[in-house]
Computed example of a mutant assay.
Amino acid sequence: MPITAMFSYPLVAGSDVSDPCRAAEGEMMKDLDTKFEKYSPRHVYFGRQNERPDMLEALITYESANNDKDWSSERKESVEKNNTEADARCHVELNPYDDLEQGLNCPVTEVATFYFSGEPLAEYLNVFSEFRAAAADEKGCGLLASAGGIAEEEMEFNGSKGKAAVFVAGWRSVEAHKDFQNTNTFKEHMPKMMHWIGKVDVCHVSFRRRV
């Protein structure tokens, strides 16, 4: 199954943060481009977080986790060389995959991480699927596609580590996402999504596809 490596690139001191996408991508991607053919990612998406303009969000999808493991050490060298450092990295099978691809090509993409306060329940993704179906039935809500999964690694939250769910949703605009939060569908289903959750991190990105 395809697996997606998700991480952020905060620009460190000395970077030109007036255009973070260009500053990081211009140099870093020169090195990474030479490695794409060797490690065969299915796709690579980069984009600046709307909420934090000095943070680059990256999603790289492989045919399997082994492709990413082989590339990790070389990517780390490139990141350090080009004045960035990776942050909050995890791997997750985001399903449905076709919806992931569509969501990343929307005008704006929501990337949401739900940190569990305890062990994740097996049925949690079923709750997400019900939410997706209800949102799809909400006429004119602006949701174009969505996908989700449970991160393979434990992720740090409030000084401790635990599991997290990651959801990616494509919207017509950030405003459309905000408007959806006022609908009865959102108010009915989001409490179910939050029942086992201790914290949620959300950002919006206009992604660009590299390969």
Rank of each mutant, 00 (worst) to 15 (best):
M6F: 14
V127Y: 07
T113D: 04
V108F: 09
S78C: 13
F207E: 03
G14W: 07
R89H: 07
I60S: 01
K81C: 01
C90V: 07
Y9W: 14
D70N: 12
F128C: 11
E123C: 05
M193N: 04
S64M: 02
P53E: 12
V12H: 09
F46W: 11
Q49E: 15
R210W: 06
E85S: 13
E80Q: 05
G142M: 07
R210E: 11
L143E: 02
R172S: 13
Q181I: 06
K192C: 09
P107H: 07
S72E: 15
V166C: 05
E80S: 12
C106M: 14
F46A: 03
E27V: 11
E101Q: 08
E138D: 15
V211S: 12
T185W: 06
E51P: 06
G103Y: 03
T109K: 01
F46R: 10
K163G: 08
Y9Q: 09
A176T: 03
D201G: 10
E25P: 00
A176F: 02
G149K: 10
F131A: 10
D99P: 01
E110D: 08
P2C: 10
P2D: 06
I3D: 00
E130R: 11
C90N: 05
A24H: 09
L125F: 00
E188N: 15
L59K: 02
A164Y: 01
H177R: 10
A136C: 05
E175M: 08
G148A: 15
A151V: 14
P120Y: 11
M190T: 13
V127T: 14
K30N: 04
A151S: 13
K139W: 00
A13M: 09
Q49R: 06
E37N: 07
Y39L: 06
L11Y: 00
K192I: 02
T4M: 02
E63F: 02
S18W: 05
S15K: 12
L11D: 04
G118S: 15
K38N: 04
A147E: 14
E154S: 12
